[in-house]
Every structure is written in C-alpha cells, then in structure tokens.
C-alpha cells in the first residue's frame, strides 16, 4: 500500500497524553497503561485508514503526504486544545529507580521500556510471519493486486495494518512518557525521526525498522556525548545522507523506488 504516515509522531504524542490521563485521573502506571493506549490508538488508526486513507490509495503519492500532514495538524492542534501547550511528564513507580551494574549506571524505567519495546517488536514479528492475518498483510504489501486475486479483503487488511501501526506507536508513546517530557508540538520531530529510521532501515522491512531504530538512537546518543546534545540530529541525519548515497533502498530494503 506504500502509505507513509506523517502523523506517526502526533499519534505517539496522543499515546503520551493518554498515558498521562490514565496516570493522573485513574492512577494507572504507564507501564500498565500502555496496553490501553495501544488499544485506543488502534481504533484511531482504523478510523483514519477507513475514513480517509482508503479514499486516496489510488491517487498520486503527494496526495498521501498532504492528507497525512493534515491528519498530523489536526492531531497536534487537538492535543493543544485538550491539554494546553505546557510540557508534561508522567509519573511512574519506576521513574526514580536506578541501579549500578558494575561500572554502568542503569535507569530502570528506560531499561523496562527497552525490554517491552523489544518484546512488542518480537510479538509483531511473530504476528506478521506466523499468523494467517499477518501473512495476508505482508502479501497485500508485497502485491496488492495479487492479494485481491486470491480473495483477500484488501480494504480490511489495510485497515488492520494501519491500526496495528498506530497501536505500536501509541504503546511507544506511553512507554517513553515516564522519562521524556512532551508537549503537543513534539509530534513533528518524532515523525521526522521515525521517517529517518524507516529510510535507513529500508522501507517495508520490519527488521530494517528495528535495526534502523537502534542505529539512529545510538548514533544520536553518542553524538550528544561526544559533540554536543544540540548536535545529536547532525549525526543521525548524516547517517541518513550516507545511506541515501550508498544504499538508497535502505539497509534491509528490497529495491529502490
């Protein structure tokens, strides 16, 4: 289907605010609440796909960009209206717990977030490669016409795929909310980062997204340590330019274009 979701980052911000709502109103820790955030964002993704993206699947690519940027603007300003412009953060029972592992100072919250993210990636992999619905999603991404020919309900497959993408980013938002302060305008930067990761890893490749995510985040952290915190994007985008020069389809991409 080749739709690039430029509202990805704004969906993540909504995941963060939902985690904040769950924590402040109902006292649910984000490390449990992320499941609810994922479910809510799944529905958002389903509705966006069914109601909007479905109408322009066959239109030229720039239409998709316009549409998804429009969705991003609506989500961002909706968050501004609902929650105001001040930065927020979510308190978790793990927020202040740390330990020493030999010479390493480990922030437990970040460690748990990392572990859950890896587990979710693994679950997504098992879903896409081990279930009938997951295989059908991969088939529709590989050859949409072929999927229609074998009798797959391609519209439903797209809606579920988009919903799962949104659910993942909703969970991600909730999982980073204990240590990343956020505000409604944080979405665009997150979208650009995820776009960067996907290009580096290779579009359409789950392994690529995983490795790309690790590469970009480690590169940015090292950049922040050895150059200056404000220069960390310099490192990740230099990486992007290098990849585009020498491997335009990305590390695990199948083909260019």
């Amino acid at each position: 289907m080749r739709v690039i979701n430029f509202a990805h980052g704004d969906m993540m911000v909504w995941g963060m605010y939902l985690a904040w709502l769950l924590a402040t109103r109902l006292g649910i820790d984000p490390y449990l609440g992320f499941v609810g955030c994922a479910a809510a964002l799944f529905v958002v993704g389903l509705v966006v796909q069914r109601g909007l993206v479905d109408r322009i699947v066959d239109a030229p690519h720039e239409m998709q960009i316009l549409l998804m940027l429009g969705v991003a603007l609506v989500l961002e300003n909706g968050a501004l209206l609902a929650f105001g412009p001040e930065p927020q953060r979510v308190r978790s029972a793990l927020t202040l717990s740390t330990f020493w592992l030999g010479p390493l100072f480990v922030d437990v919250a970040r460690l748990v977030t990392f572990a859950v993210a890896v587990a979710l990636s693994l679950a997504l992999y098992l879903f896409l490669f081990g279930t009938d619905l997951g295989r059908t999603i991969r088939a529709a991404a590989d050859n949409a016409y072929g999927a229609l020919v074998i009798g797959a309900d391609v519209r439903r497959v797209y809606a579920v795929a988009f919903g799962i993408g949104a659910a993942c980013v909703g969970a991600a938002g909730a999982l980073v909310s204990p240590f990343l302060p956020f505000q409604p305008s944080a979405g665009l930067a997150a979208s650009v980062t995820s776009f960067n990761i996907v290009i580096i890893g290779g579009m359409g490749s789950l392994l690529g997204a995983f490795v790309g995510g690790l590469l970009v985040s480690v590169a940015e952290s090292l950049g922040a340590v050895f150059l200056a915190p404000s220069l960390k994007e310099l490192v990740s985008f230099s990486l992007l330019i290098l990849i585009l020069l020498f491997r335009p389809a990305g590390l695990f991409g199948r083909r260019a274009g």
Binding site: R135, R138, A139, D142, N143, G146, V149, R254
Partner: peptide, 9 residues
C-alpha cells in the same frame, strides 16, 4: 496474467 505472486514471500 503475469501470475501476480508475492515475490518476497
């Protein structure tokens, strides 16, 4: 026509 397989599967 053209078989329309899923080439990367």
């Amino acid at each position: 026509e053209g078989r329309q397989l899923f080439p990367s599967m």
